[in-house]
Amino acid sequence: MLAEISARDWYKIEPLEYTALLITSPFCQTCTLAEKMVEEAKNIEGRTNIYKLNLQLAPDFAYEYKIQSVPMLLLFHRQTLVARLSPIKHTGNILHFLTNNREE
């Protein structure tokens, strides 16, 4: 299960490498499916820390990152947004996103 964090907690995290954030809403059935796929991708890929953020509780975050729909997966490198994935189609799609948006 992905650890759910608040926007306030997100801003306190100081990741050294890549971190992903799954943007969801508790009223979104597609988000529930996306979370399962993201968890599976996280277990396979194993290098990226992935958290979950409830957008209903983070309107300022939504505005700052121009989030217009959920679910959405954001990839950050040391707090800098480097890529976003939406729609989330399947586990392979997520794995491709996590591995091909890195500069290593």
Rank of each mutant, 00 (worst) to 15 (best):
N100S: 14
T99Q: 11
T48I: 14
L33P: 01
I5C: 11
F61L: 06
R8A: 15
R84E: 15
R102K: 15
D9W: 11
I5L: 12
C31P: 04
E45D: 14
F97N: 02
T80A: 13
Q79A: 12
E45T: 05
L81W: 11
I44D: 03
N43Q: 14
K12A: 13
I44V: 10
N43W: 06
P87Q: 06
E35V: 02
L98I: 01
P59Y: 08
T32H: 13
E104N: 15
N43M: 13
E35Y: 02
M37K: 07
P71R: 00
A62L: 06
R84N: 14
I44S: 04
E104A: 12
F97K: 02
P87K: 04
K42D: 08
A34F: 03
E45K: 07
A7Y: 07
S86C: 11
M1Q: 06
P15T: 12
L53A: 03
T19K: 12
C31E: 02
C28P: 04
P59E: 05
T48A: 10
L85V: 06
I50Y: 00
A58C: 08
K42P: 04
N100W: 09
E64G: 03
E14T: 13
I23W: 00
L73T: 01
T91V: 13
V38Y: 02
L2D: 04
L98C: 01
K36P: 01
Q29F: 09
I88Q: 03
L74N: 03
T91I: 05
Q68R: 10
I23F: 00
Y65M: 06
N101C: 08
Q79I: 09
Y11D: 14
K12I: 05
A83S: 10
L98A: 00
M37A: 08
I50H: 00
D60Y: 10
M1E: 09
T30A: 10
I5D: 05
R102L: 10
T48E: 09
H96N: 13
L85F: 04
M37C: 06
V38H: 01
R78C: 13
Y51N: 00
I88F: 09
E103L: 13
G46E: 09
K42Q: 15
P71Y: 00
M37N: 05
T99P: 02
N49D: 09
A41F: 03
N49Q: 10
E17A: 14
K66E: 13
A3P: 07
T19I: 14
E35F: 01
H77K: 13
A20M: 10
E45P: 02
L95R: 03
H90T: 06
